[in-house]
Design a binder for these strands. Structure first.
Lengths: 264, 264
DNA sequence: TGGAGGGTTGACCCAGCGTCAAGGTCAAGC
DNA sequence: GCTTGACCTTGACGCTGGGTCAACCCTCCA
């Protein structure tokens, strides 16, 4: 008959694995010769190869035992189920391969395609890479907060970009990263923004219910303020004119303007 | 920013996993708010999603860390390697699926195709299933002992089956399982075997160097003897006529016949 | 004010073996 | 008969990638 290493080699497993199967009762302990060595017959070979076939399919050993000790119809059902899982796993790995390819190509993978397309459109308009990166990080955070509605939010941004004034605004903002602190062009930016805001309010496009949490809106705004000295000046100018916010624009009633000051 | 559960949900991992990555230093511990809660930024999202993409590809976390902290060319090389492994894994799973299908179809998988074909040929000759099973188990043991030369051994058996006398022999042996203990047809079997042996010796086809270990040959012979009472009688008749063995046939010189008796 | 639903750390548990450790056995050569 | 090297034996600990309590703290809302 066979020694344990012959058995193991033929079935393509290690000796250690065979002994493990004995301990957990998956493979019955065979007879021993007079020196205590295990000696195996063909039945053991068949069982071990069946065990490996199922285990290679990713079936836990406890389930392998159930299946091998069950009737033929239970076994067939189990095998069918395993095959389905195997098929799903193959597709998962294929999917992982394509994600890996995107990762190698330099994509961040942290954003849905719609946002990536939007950032590419900005890039196409000549917006600087530094500015795009700031936008990207903001979008990553937004997508993390409201993954379900990110596509519709982006759709709105695309519509906004159809307006040449908005395109102009972006190209100014992009360049603004290098402006001196008191650059007068910031007023031009404020003018464009105000025109855009007025138009948006008139078209009834300003809805506070975009699904993004208030605190989070404040946070994005303050991140923006920290990113550039111009941002604070810009917000101040707009606030004088009765507007508040950046991420989400609000009209501030004139009479409240003097009493309500920003907390910080 | 994001809490741990928001981060985890967006990246598709559990909170526990994120904390695990912190412990092993894979994801840097972020700032805490004043109550000790971790707060995450976009950089953490990007890193976590990269971690998951690599981990989903089956990369050990230690290697993920190496890759993410390495330069772009090392990273690219690593990713390529991982992709190769992934591809190999997909093929392995596809292979496992086909083995699984064969298992479900009732195959034993413990034998190479050549032996399965050989057994099918015996079946086609009308040999009984009980006899086939005995043969199968013997072939499993032989294949386990000499996996590299099993195909050539089987090729020889196929040639033997081209001889109508051999076919007759098998059909008799198959039926012999139900013969009464003293059935005279056993002599007919012996006659056929002797004719076949004589022819084999004349053709120079008997070579002791078939790669199968002597002890193992003895073992197969004794298994055969135990399997049926006729087997012992058959061997006895042949031995009277100067032949020894079953698995491997040997001519015994006439002068040694009287002095050398079987030990048991 | 208290309860739900977050968050925090820490400790133990799991499969499926790999990897020593510390020997006993067998076959072969000298 | 002795040694050598390749096997065999049991037993115990280690590893990955977290899951699953436990015991407690923080925040928010009614």
């Amino acid at each position: 008959m066979l020694t344990i290493s012959q058995l193991a080699a033929y079935a393509g497993v290690t000796v250690r694995a065979v002994r493990h199967y004995h301990r957990i009762g998956l493979l019955p302990e065979p007879e021993r010769d007079r020196s205590g060595y295990r000696i195996y017959d063909a039945v053991a070979v068949v069982r071990l190869i069946r065990i490996r076939t199922l285990a290679d399919a990713g079936v836990p050993l406890a389930r392998v035992q159930e299946l091998l000790d069950a009737g033929p119809e239970v076994f067939a059902g189990g095998v069918q189920e395993i095959d389905k899982a195997l098929h799903a796993e193959i597709r998962r790995l294929q999917n992982t391969r394509s994600r890996l390819a995107r990762l190698a190509a330099g994509e961040h993978l942290a954003l849905p395609q719609s946002v990536v397309d939007y950032l590419d459109r900005l890039r196409g308009l000549g917006v600087e890479e530094r500015y795009i990166e700031m936008e990207r990080d903001a979008w990553i955070m937004i997508a993390a907060q409201v993954p379900h509605s990110i596509d519709s939010v982006i759709a709105k941004k695309h519509e906004e970009l159809d307006d040449p004034e908005m395109v102009k605004l972006y190209s100014l903002l992009s360049g603004a990263l290098d402006w001196p602190a008191d650059d007068p062009r910031i007023v031009e930016v404020a003018d464009i923004m105000e025109r855009l805001m007025v138009r948006a309010v008139e078209a009834g496009e300003v809805d506070a219910d975009d699904g993004i949490d208030d605190q989070f809106v404040d946070l994005l705004d303050s991140t923006m303020v920290e990113s550039s000295p111009h941002a604070a000046r810009l917000l101040a100018i707009l606030e004088e004119r009765g507007w508040r916010g950046w991420t989400r624009i609000e009209r501030v009633p004139a009479e409240r303007l003097k009493t309500e000051l920003p907390p910080s």
